[in-house]
Structure formats: structure tokens, C-alpha cells
Design a protein around this nucleic acid. Sequence first.
DNA 1: CTGAAAGCGCTTACAG
DNA 2: CTGAAAGCGCTTACAG
Lengths: 339, 339
Amino acid sequence: MTLTLEDIARLASCSRSTVSRVINGDPKVSVTTRQRVKKVITELNFQPNLAARGLASGQTHILGLIVPLSVTSIFSDPFYPLLIQSISTTCTQRDYSIMLWLAAPEFERRTIHQVLYNGLIDGVIVSAMSFNDPTLKSLAESKLPYIVVGRNPNDDKTCFIDVDNYNGARNVVDHLYKLGRRRIATIAGPGDVIVGFDRLRGYRDGLKDHGLAYDPDLVVEGDFSDAGGYIAALKLINKKPDAIFATSDVMAVAAIRALTEAGYKVPEDVAIVGFDDISLATRSIPALTTVRQPIDLMGASVVNMLIDLIEHPATATRTMVLPTELVIRSSCGAELARN
Amino acid sequence: MTLTLEDIARLASCSRSTVSRVINGDPKVSVTTRQRVKKVITELNFQPNLAARGLASGQTHILGLIVPLSVTSIFSDPFYPLLIQSISTTCTQRDYSIMLWLAAPEFERRTIHQVLYNGLIDGVIVSAMSFNDPTLKSLAESKLPYIVVGRNPNDDKTCFIDVDNYNGARNVVDHLYKLGRRRIATIAGPGDVIVGFDRLRGYRDGLKDHGLAYDPDLVVEGDFSDAGGYIAALKLINKKPDAIFATSDVMAVAAIRALTEAGYKVPEDVAIVGFDDISLATRSIPALTTVRQPIDLMGASVVNMLIDLIEHPATATRTMVLPTELVIRSSCGAELARN
DNA sequence: CTGAAAGCGCTTACAG
DNA sequence: CTGAAAGCGCTTACAG
């Protein structure tokens, strides 16, 4: 038998209005009354019904989290688990809950509509993968506050938080150049994936920074998976690169394997750099030089941004780009260069 | 401006009671009325407010999902991401939503209480890791329907779904024995983790099946992580095993690395078998023989069991143990034995 | 500072 | 088969 405001009110000798005010931190309740009510609430471990609260106030303290579920990436890449973990932890701290939707490709507009208009969520965090994501269109049409993890290339009014993929990639090329590499290849992401596009832009501009020509032969597309990285590396071997920038750690590690099996030495013959800095990067042989993404910070920030946007729409931060960090280990050959 | 039942009722020339009945599939609505109402609902893309529905009916169609977040495992192991994915997909199919709590160690009873008594969820799926999990105690005290993924060793009345860890492990020993191995070691899980305990039991009984003595020297504890598996394998080397059963794939792959680096050949000198069959198992060199867990089936089944328990408590299936499958690749030496 | 009352958008006996 | 009405457990002007 669940308690209601009315029960607490009776035990604290006041009205349910007052109990509600105490729970919601309304300052205009006398100190004595407040203490009396709080005591009863604590003793009985009272929990207000959130459905009722949501209905009455229009605020549920629930955030929706929509993660695109492209089988490949969630299988092999700890990025999303870590992001979800960070988001979840921050929500609990801020006294919000999250509803999770893993959006399969067949997650059509109908379903999205159900998610957005069921009156259950105050705002949405959505992870953007590809250009022309229908979810982003639906969100833009709704009046629900939302923040994109990544960015929405089709709409510069969208609130977002992103990692500086462009400069992360650009710095990789700079680093490899300074180590004496001149035939710098890249294993890019799929063409329709935004982070892949941004990292490729950074790669191109990194070449330009140092007067290196862009050579399409040195660019092969991967799908962020181990198998994709492996095959891409095999294709690149014939082009005789002296460095490969793989746009994900999973692909970078696969590239190391492909090259090693083909009789090349990493980093002596070919330097390899990845992107992400997942735990695999430390364990690979040689240890992987890579671009670290601040996943924890991104998860925490996106939650705080969204709650801010819900509670103080006028003053909220609407966009944020987090810096990356080049983590130098062995696979880039920095140690060789030093000797 | 959001639509309500009243709006639909006006447009379909009936009462909001009737609209509600149509939405909930009440059979005693005339065919013509039903069609008229459905037409309006579809045209306007009407979405009933779930908070209101939950308040009025006591059923929210929301399931809580509580996953213990021991940093190590979620970092390196795709088990939970895959499980969550499967649960999420099935929920969407069954027209339920899920609220996610990643329970950090400091997820204390207070928070659990908030989760369980906020009137927002119809039932809970909880993944059980360790003996004496406080979450399980709190759930047992609540009157919410819940299903444990894993099992609750402290309470045999708890509904659960589990993988047959015991026989999975036992079969590994049987397989290795038949390949001629006699000094079969194991890298066990941490002592307080239930699956680790069950796999260790299976290992012991597998030895017994073939009259092999249990030798404590051949049992080293790991923590399911890569580093843990690596260190455990190093410790085992001195004991001269001719086979190692690692109770997770991540540890098995680390063990292969440790042995290879130490100059041993896998599987010639030491056979290795893992547990899980994650994608890493196919890519390891040699490819990993391992015990496949039906993660997808488990996710789908637990959702169906829980919804059944909520909607038809009297007749619902209350426990389920899914079989595992030994997947034979190269690391166990089955190919050697055949020649 | 506090309470009575209306209302949030649904469901569901009850009566017809 | 259908509608009027009560009620789910809250919040929040409004009045005092």
C-alpha cells in the first residue's frame, strides 16, 4: 500500500499543499512546519508518484536518450557504453532519470513520434551518426528541448556537444609530418558518417598545412570495425604509405595486424595512429598512438546542458566543442625518431 | 499544443470514454465507431499522454533496467551492451519502454528505493553480479514484479533467467579431456561473482567426471579483464598446465598473449578455451574455442517473461535456464588432435 | 505562511 | 454499445 501526499499531510498535521511545497523546496514554508514534514517524509521513506507529478506540473524529470544502433559499432566499440555510463551517472546525480531507446535502422518516424509525444520526457539527448538522420528531423519539428551528441550539419541552430574531430585529425597529420613521414594515408569512416567526414577534413587540411598533396590513392574507406580496418590496410599496402591514420582505434589495431602479418614493421616501416583512445590502445603491440576523446566529460556535459536548457532556456549554453588530446605511444614511431 | 482524448472525441463525435476504449482495444465498441475514431487518431497522429494513463490505470508500460556497473567489465566486455540492445529491441516490439539505471557501487538503498517507488515502472529487470547484492534485497522487499538476469543464490523464489554456466564449463573440461589434456587449469572469476562461481563449479565437476584430481595450484582468480587474465596466465605458467580454461573470452585472449610472449605455443603446448563467444574470439590468433552464450535470446526472453509476469502473474514462466554451446575453433587444439 | 479547490489527461466502474 | 462521473496523486494559482 503506497503512501500519498495526503498520508504525509495527516501525519504532519498540515495540508497536502504544504507537503508538496516542502518537497519542492518552496521557500515560503515556515521552518517549524518544514522540519515537521521532512521528519515524517524521512521516517516513512516517502516517494512522490512521478506520474502524478509529471501530469500536474508538466515536468517529469525524465530525459530521453536515443542512440543509433548500427550493429557494427556497438558490437566492437566501447564508445557508446562509456557514453551511456557517463550520462546515466550524471543524471542520477542531478536527480533525473533516463529512458533509453536504441534506435535500430527501422526506427521510423512513427516510433520517434511516440517517443517524443508521450508526455513522459522533458528533453532528449540524441547521438547523431549520419547525415540526414530522420531522427534529427523529427526532433527539429517537435518543441521538445534536445541536444545532439555530435552535430547536425543540416541545421546550425541545433544545440549540440561535439568533440573536436577536425583538429584532432589535423594534429595527427602534423605529428606524423614532424616525425618525418611524408606518404601519410588514412583509413576514413563511411562517407555518410559525420565524425568520419570531420576527421577526413582534418586529415586533408593537415596535409595542406605542410604542403603535402592530397592523394586519393592514400584514402580508403573503412566502417569503423575490425574487419573494415583490416581490409582497408591491405588495400593501402600496395600504395606504399609510410604512415596510416586510422580514424578509429579498432581499425588502427586491425591495421597493425594486417601490416604485421604482411611482413611490415610498425612503426619502422609504417607508422600507425588511431582515434578514440579506448583501452585496447594500451594493449596493442606496439601500443597505439591515438587521439583521446573526453567521453566522460562529454556525457556529463550533455546532461548538464540539457537540464539547463529545460530549466533555464534563456541563458543555457547551446553548443560546446570539447578538445581532443594526442596520446603518444609507440605505434607512431616517436620513440624511433628520438633515438 | 498537444492533443488530448477530448479533442479526438469532439472530432469523432463521441465521448472521451469511447476514444479511450478504442485506444485500449476494448472489444465492446461498435465497428463503425471504432473506425471513425481510429481514422481521426491516425490523421492527427494522436499520442495519449502516458503519465496520465499511468496515473489512472496504474500501468505505465515502462520497465526498469538496472545494470550493475563495475567499471572493469563494462569497459572491456561487450556482454552488457549486447544484452541491453536485445532488451531494448524487444521492449519496442512489445510496446514497452525502458528506464535505465547503471548502478554504480555507491548506488545505495536510498536510490534504489526512489527507483522502485516512484510509480513510474511496472516491473524491473536486474542483472545480478555478485552474491549479497543489496539491490536484490530491496527488490525482494518491494512488491514490484522483477526478473533477475543471472540468479539469486540467496532466494530460490526469485524469478530469473540464466545461462547454464555450470554445464557450459563442465563441457569445456570434457572437451579438453577428450583431446588428451590432463593438467587442465582455470582462470576463475572473482570469488563474489555468481557466474564465476558457477563456472568454477562446472570446472570442478568436469574434472571429477573424468577422475582428475582438483588441484588448487591450477586455479587462479582473474577479474574478467584483460589485465587480470594476463597476470593470471603468467602465474599459471609455472604450474605447467597443458590447458587453461579462462572463464571469459577477454581473459582467454589475454592468456594467449601471455603464453605466446613467454615462448609457449597455443594450442600445441597449452590449449586455451574461453567463455562468451564475443567477436574478439574469432579474431584472436589462434581463433578461440569458447562457450557461446545466447545473449540475444536472453535479452528477448527476459523482457517477455517480465511482461508476462506483469500481465498474467498467475501463469507466467518464472525461471528459465538457457543452454550454452561449445564453439570449437583452433585454440583448444582440436585440429591437432585430428591429424 | 497555509489551505481549499481546480485541474493535469487519462481509465473504468456504473447506469442506461 | 455509449456517456457522465469519479478518481488516480500530484501542483499551483487564489484567497486569506
